[in-house]
Design a protein around this nucleic acid. Sequence first.
DNA 1: CAACTATTTGGCTACTTAGCCAAGTAACCA
DNA 2: TGGTTACTTGGCTAAGTAGCCAAATAGTTG
Lengths: 103, 103
Amino acid sequence: MPANKTVSSKRAAVIKALAHPSRLLIAEALMDGEMCVCDLKDLVGADMSTVSKHLSLMRQAGVLVSDKRGLNIYYRLACDCLGDFLRCLDLLAPKKATTKPCC
Amino acid sequence: MPANKTVSSKRAAVIKALAHPSRLLIAEALMDGEMCVCDLKDLVGADMSTVSKHLSLMRQAGVLVSDKRGLNIYYRLACDCLGDFLRCLDLLAPKKATTKPCC
DNA sequence: CAACTATTTGGCTACTTAGCCAAGTAACCA
DNA sequence: TGGTTACTTGGCTAAGTAGCCAAATAGTTG
């Protein structure tokens, strides 16, 4: 595999970890600070097992880090730069197949 | 659907458009300027129909814009902010399930 | 207009992913 | 120790996605 393709694959894995409405919602919520799985479950509104799988996928990708304290496991963002990331998205998100650049 | 979930869905659609090695490779290549489908086909090394489907998905998501000139269709990024986006990725990509933040 | 080139679209198959339920693990408390 | 709470894992099914091939479309050139 060519070098540039390997790099793209690694990067794509990180992006993939955010490319799902529930996972992105989780990432956005964690911008305000850490949360435990049961809080995230309420936020997302899915089965706890489903949320847990999303979280472990995000942790694997390096997007989140976790921290066990007592019975709870707290998750937080591994990187602050996610804010810029999301601001960039908002420039693109409202546009649909236009013919001129957004910025 | 709650408002924050709707927003996350729209954003996730944009992220999804970049969450594939070939599509990311395309986006990275287009940071240096527009390219036509046949050049992108060579870059990705897949069937032209496959590349074309990736491109239309990215255009739908608002990530790319296209421009037909003669027989060729040229694609370019809809937004310059993708550079910051990718730089953020590189901070995360090399890390795997560590317990401390990368930045 | 016919042949040619560039690109898109439709159709199909193989693979991946999301979500739920049920069962397993691990820390805490009576 | 036995029950309870918090979370993860395994197993399954349904839905979505990627990729190829073949056919269709659209602009170009002789």
